[in-house]
């Protein structure tokens, strides 16, 4: 599903964000990218969604060579991905329903599909009954659930989550992780960057550890060390 071959990404002249990274992620896997801030976790996610382009090596996502993709094809790649962020990136002037519907609206889905899919996914993330709330009327955990709903509503092949529990307390984080696990159980590949030991250790999934842009460990059913 995702394959990186000797990928290097350098910001500016000499800030090496990722160095010679190679790994494979199969369909349906749940993978943690771990490491301290600045170790290159986010950059790896951004390379997969082509918010960044690698300086060296190849990035393959869902059978597409992301590096060589023409800019006009990028939107089609992004429709196969769901992105979740630490700061949720919700639109504050839109309701919960509208935030999720927005993701379908802007890729041209017809109204009846939106009317059908949005309640389904809001139910999945446990926000039924809060459709008309605005983001500021929700707790952090609930806002992150909206964000996950928005990322998942188009049934992506892959979920890319960048520190989704970074702003949440442990109990709330647990709920978010349970939700991501549930989404993973539907066959969706999940790649999650995190430096939250508790979350990583509780899940016991594959762990890829980075240190200053270099992969130092790739372990099945690993823990944060």
């Amino acid at each position: 599903m995702i394959r990186l071959e000797e990928v290097t990404k350098i910001y500016g002249r000499d800030t090496v964000a990722v160095s010679d990274a190679t790994f494979d992620i199969s369909k349906g896997e749940f993978v943690f990218l771990v490491g301290p801030s600045g170790s290159g976790k986010s950059t790896l996610l951004r390379l997969m969604s082509r918010q960044e382009v690698a300086d060296e090596g190849d990035v393959w996502v869902a059978g597409r060579n992301v590096n060589e993709m023409s800019p006009s094809r990028v939107p089609h790649l992004r429709r196969l991905l769901g992105n979740v962020f630490q700061d949720y990136k919700l639109l504050t002037n839109k309701t919960v329903f509208e935030n999720v519907a927005f993701a379908l609206e802007v890729i041209g889905k017809p109204r009846h599909v939106i009317a059908e899919q949005v309640p389904l996914v809001l139910d999945l993330v446990g926000l039924s009954g809060k459709e008309e709330r605005f983001p500021h009327q929700l707790s952090g955990g609930e806002q992150q659930r909206v964000s996950i709903a928005r990322a998942f509503v188009n049934r992506p092949l892959i979920m890319l989550a960048d520190e989704p529990t970074g702003n949440l307390d442990p109990a709330t984080s647990e709920g978010i992780m349970a939700l991501l696990a549930e989404i993973n159980d539907t066959g969706t590949t999940v790649v999650m960057a995190s430096h939250d030991h508790r979350v990583v250790n509780a899940m016991r999934r594959r762990v890829i550890q980075l240190d200053r842009g270099v992969i130092v460990r790739d372990q099945e059913r690993g823990v944060y060390e």
Partner: peptide, 17 residues
């Protein structure tokens, strides 16, 4: 800009934006 950022992330085409 936030809306545009979200639109790009969920795969809206540049023309649509």
């Amino acid at each position: 800009r936030r809306e545009i950022e979200v639109m790009k992330l969920v795969g809206a085409t540049n023309w649509f934006i």
